[in-house]
Design a protein around this nucleic acid. Structure first.
Lengths: 330, 330
DNA sequence: CGAATCTATGAAAACGTTGGCGATCTTCGC
DNA sequence: GCGAAGATCGCCAACGTTTTCATAGATTCG
C-alpha cells in the first residue's frame, strides 16, 4: 500500500540500489540521475521503511529517554530539550517514566534498549554497578549523573552552590540547613558534597537534615525539623521540596524571609509563581536535554572515541523574594 | 550478536517456524515441543527482533502520543497514564510535544505516523478538517477532544461545570466571569458551551473575557480585566490560568475569596500547594491516558467496528480555599 | 482396510531496504 | 592507441521474522 523503493526505481527508470544511493550517498550517483530520483521520490512521497532499513543497518533511528518522574516539572523541561534536538536529527524519542523506582528503571531499560540505538538516562536512580552493566550493552549518555568512562552532561553544581552560599552569607546567614533528597540520587550526593566544601570555605555552619522524597510533600514533612534546628536559612534539594517548606512555614506563621530564608534548586516555572517567589539556582534543563542528545549522536557516530565526552553546563542563582537579611537571634 | 530465532531453533532441535509458532500460536504445536522451545528461548534470552517482525506484519508495536505542552502539568499526568497502560500491553510510546503550535502538530503527526501503529492525540489544536485527513491515514484516538466517527475519551465537562456553578451559586454568586483559553482548543469551546447552558439554568449571569494562552501568564494578563467587570467569582479555563489570576489578585491586594472567588479546571498537583489553595474541577488525567490506550488497542485489533467508541469519564469538584461566600456589593 | 481428515512440523517465500561485487563505459597517462 | 583507473549503475544476497504451502505420520470413518 505504501510507496516502496521499487516504485521509485520503476518510475525513475533505475534500479533500487541507485535509489538508495541517490538518497543516502548522493556523491556516488550521476548528478542527473540523482536529481531525477530525488524528484520522483518526492513526487511519490516516498519514505524509506524504517523497519526494513533497521533490519539491515541494525539502527532504529530511535533513542530512549528515561526520567524518574514526569510530575516533577524539572523533567518535562529536559524532555522538551531532548525532543527538539532529536527531531532535528530525525530521531524519534521513546519516553519512559520510572516513578522514582530503581527496579522499574532497570526493567524499562532492558525493554527499551532493544528498540533504540542509544539511551539517555536522566537522573537515574539505580546504583553505579547496575548502571555499568547497562553501559556494557547499549550506548548510554547520562544526564544529571556522572560515572567514570561514561559520557554525561551535568550542571556546574559546585559553582551554583558557591553562588547560593555567597548570597546567603552576604545576607548575614551563618547557620544553614540542607534538606537532602533521595539517597539514590547522584544529584543529591553531589549537592551535599559541594555544599560541604563551599560552606566550609565560607565559614558557614551546615546542618544536614533527613533524606526526603524529592516532592512537595517531602518539603512539608521536613519543615518542622528544619525550624527546630534554629537555622536562619535553608537550602532544599530542589524547588519542589523548597515549595513544601515554604508552604509549611506559611501554615505555621513563620515569616519568609523574615525569620527564615529558603533557597531551592532547579528553577522550575512554578517557583516564580508562588508567594513569596522562590530564590533558586537555575539548572540548564532544556539545554541539558539537547546536549545529551548531541553527545549520544556523537557516541553513535563514532563509538570508539577513547575519552568519554563530558559536558558541564553553567548554573545561575536567581534571587527572588524567599531570601533576605538574616534575623538577629537572641 | 543478539540471539536470533535460528539460535533457538538449533538448540531446541526444531525449525524456525516451530519456534515462532510455539511463542505466538502455542496451540498449534505439540505441548512437549512447545515447552522445550519456550524454555530454550528463555534460557537464551531470546526476544524477537521487532524490526523484522514489523517488516512482515506491518505492525511496529509502537504508539505515538502528541501533547500540546509538557510544561503544563496536566499533560504529564496523561502521559503517565498512557505509558503505564501501553507498557502493560507491551507497546512502546513515542512522545512528541507540539508547543501549542497547530502547524508543528501536523508535521509531527506526519512524521510519527509512519513509525507507529496508531496515534493518541491529546488536546490537538488543529482544525477538524485537518484532523479528518489524518484520521483517514492512521488509526487515531482523541483524548480531550471529540469529532464525529472518531474514537475519543473526554471528561464529563457538562457535569463538572454543573458542579462548579452549583457551588458558586450556593455561595451566593450571581455574576461569574469565565476566562477563556485558546480558540483552537476544543476543551475551551466545550467549557464555554456547557457553562452557558448551566449558567442560564442556574440563573447566573455570565461574563466572558478574552482568550488567553493556557498558562500562568495568561491568567496574570486577564486578572485586571476580570476585576473591572465587577464579578464576584471567576472560572478559569484551567488551573494554570487560575493560578495566574490568583497571583495578580494577591499582588493587587484583592482578597481571595473575600472579594472574589476563583475556580479552576484540571486539578493539577500545584493547585493544592498554593495559598489560598485552589478550588477546581478535577479531570481524570491518568485515567484518560489509560482509556485512550485501551480504545486505540481495540481499534487496532478490530479496525472495522462501525460505531466509534467514545468514553466519557467522570469529573469531580474539589473545594479548597479559593472560593467563598459572595461579598455584598453596594 | 482404504480414503479422508487432523496434527505437527519443515521448507521456502516474502517483507523493504542496504551494500558488496562486478559489469560497463569513460577518462587519463604515456 | 592501450592498459589502468575512475565513475556509474545493476544484480543479488542478506537482515530476522512471519506465513503460506507442502509433507509425513496419526487418526477417524464408512
Amino acid at each position: 500500500m505504501a510507496v516502496t523503493i521499487k516504485d521509485v526505481a520503476r518510475v525513475a527508470g533505475v534500479s533500487a540500489s541507485t535509489v538508495t544511493r541517490a538518497l543516502t550517498m548522493p556523491e556516488l550517483v550521476h548528478p542527473e540521475t540523482r536529481e531525477r530520483v530525488k524528484r520522483v521520490a518526492a513526487d511519490l512521497g516516498y519514505h524509506p521503511n524504517r523497519a526494513a532499513r533497521g533490519l539491515i543497518t541494525g539502527r532504529t533511528g530511535n533513542i530512549g529517554l528515561l526520567v524518574p518522574d514526569l510530575a516533577n516539572p524539572f523533567f518535562p523541561s529536559v524532555v522538551k530539550g531532548v525532543q527538539a534536538r532529536a527531531h532535528e536529527a530525525d530521531y524519534a524519542v521513546f519516553l519512559a517514566d520510572t516513578d522514582e523506582d530503581a527496579t522499574a528503571e532497570i526493567g524499562l531499560v532492558r525493554k527499551l534498549s532493544k528498540q533504540v540505538d542509544g539511551l539517555l538516562l536522566c537522573s537515574p536512580r539505580m546504583s553505579d554497578d547496575e548502571l555499568r552493566t547497562i553501559v556494557g550493552d547499549t550506548p548510554v549518555v547520562l544526564v544529571n549523573r556522572r560515572l567514570a568512562r561514561v559520557p554525561s552532561v551535568t550542571p556546574e553544581l559546585l559553582d551554583g552552590m558557591r553562588q547560593a552560599i555567597s548570597h546567603l552569607t552576604a545576607l548575614g546567614h551563618r547557620r544553614v540547613a540542607y534538606v537532602a533528597g533521595p539517597r539514590s540520587s547522584w544529584a543529591n550526593r553531589e549537592r551535599v558534597r559541594s555544599l560541604r566544601t563551599v560552606a566550609a570555605a565560607a565559614g558557614a555552619e551546615l546542618v544536614e537534615t533527613g533524606n526526603v522524597t524529592p516532592q512537595f510533600e517531602g518539603g512539608v514533612a521536613a519543615a518542622d525539623q528544619v525550624l527546630a534546628t534554629g537555622v536562619t536559612a535553608v537550602i532544599a534539594y530542589n524547588d519542589l521540596v523548597a515549595l513544601g517548606l515554604l508552604n509549611r512555614f506559611t501554615a505555621r506563621g513563620v515569616a519568609v524571609p523574615g525569620e527564615v530564608s529558603v533557597l531551592g534548586f532547579d528553577d522550575i516555572p512554578l517557583s516564580a509563581m508562588v508567594h513569596p517567589a522562590l530564590t533558586t539556582v537555575d539548572l540548564p534543563k532544556e539545554q541539558s536535554g539537547r546536549a545529551g542528545v548531541d553527545l549520544l549522536l556523537q557516541l553513535l557516530a563514532e563509538p570508539d572515541r577513547s575519552p568519554a565526552a563530558r559536558r558541564e553546563l553553567p548554573t545561575q542563582l536567581i534571587v527572588r523574594a524567599s531570601t533576605g537579611i538574616a534575623p538577629r537571634r537572641v
